[in-house]
Design a protein around this nucleic acid. Structure first.
Lengths: 158, 158
DNA sequence: TTGAAAATGTTCCATTTGGAACAATACCCC
DNA sequence: GGGGTATTGTTCCAAATGGAACATTTTCAA
């Protein structure tokens, strides 16, 4: 193999032994990494914290265990995020009257507002990377990813 | 919104405001996270270290700056990975005779062997998640991701 | 009814990670 | 030829992260 000047990530990815995973990782990182850098700079929150707000913005209430399962993050990461987000007033936490081991978590209006701003930043970053695809390509991409995701979820719960 | 028992990640992803990014992230994590956990357990190397080996297995020689650009990782992360992989005998490092600021990096036979083993683990993890897709779906997924990736690379290089 | 196992969340600690500052070197312009 | 800027890689330090141990509570089987 000749020495390559200015190695090209675009070409390199196609030669990787696990090409599909490499492409997925590259495209996902291109969206997620700059988005989270900006989110951290603007809102002072980190990934686990935003994932917590995201989950709670889509469910009326959740437990920390629910969030851990939804996000795949370990319980201590969620626990730490809960403490920080309660401290910032973005979520509320109350004991579960049925099961004293767990707490009920709920997003506050203030937290929901942060979620909305962050979701806009994420959407913007997503469009910066995927915006060049046609409507059909976007829809096809979603269908294929959904199929893979559902197979994974079923595998986990089965 | 009614309280949902046992929240379902599969359904939840479709409702996220940045659905495409959420699906990409979920599928990529489903491949990458378990793979790296296994790689760390088996070979005692971490992500930046393996990314270094991966790059060097696809080019005859590279500089740390090249690897940083290919992977998107900061220079100090690559610098630390270089030190660790040299220490393990997986790569060699020699001064560049033309530019004394930089070093020439090259993978060793030992390092290449580790790369092969890790690539097999990555491929296995990739197939565990994407194996349920048809040949046509895989090929379509790659085409769409490649288009997005190339647009991103071109955007980065000017 | 009781004890063991499992579940839930917290805390501690070590590892991983990246920003910033730094030193040495290269490049460029006057 | 010299000075200023940029580049390359290293080191330091603080923040982020997750595994393990722990305490409390719930579940379940004997």
């Amino acid at each position: 193999m000749a020495v390559k000047t200015h190695p090209d990530a675009g070409i390199f990815l196609d030669e990787v032994e696990f090409r599909d995973a490499a492409l997925l990782s590259f495209v996902t990182s291109a969206i997620i990494v700059p988005a989270y850098d900006e989110i951290h700079a603007c809102h002072g929150i980190i990934r686990a914290e935003y994932l917590l707000l995201l989950c709670l913005s889509h469910f009326d209430v959740l437990t920390a265990q629910d969030v851990s399962e939804l996000t795949g993050r370990p319980r201590n990461s969620i626990s730490r995020a809960v403490s920080r987000m309660v401290g910032k007033g973005y979520i509320e936490k109350r004991p579960d009257s049925y099961d004293k081991r767990q707490s009920i978590l709920k997003i506050t209006a203030k937290g929901f507002k942060v979620h909305k701003a962050v979701a806009a930043q994420m959407t913007h970053s997503q469009e910066a990377v995927l915006g060049g695809l046609t409507e059909k390509e976007r829809s096809t991409l979603v269908q294929i990813l959904r199929k893979a995701a559902l197979a994974k979820v079923e595998d986990t719960c089965g």
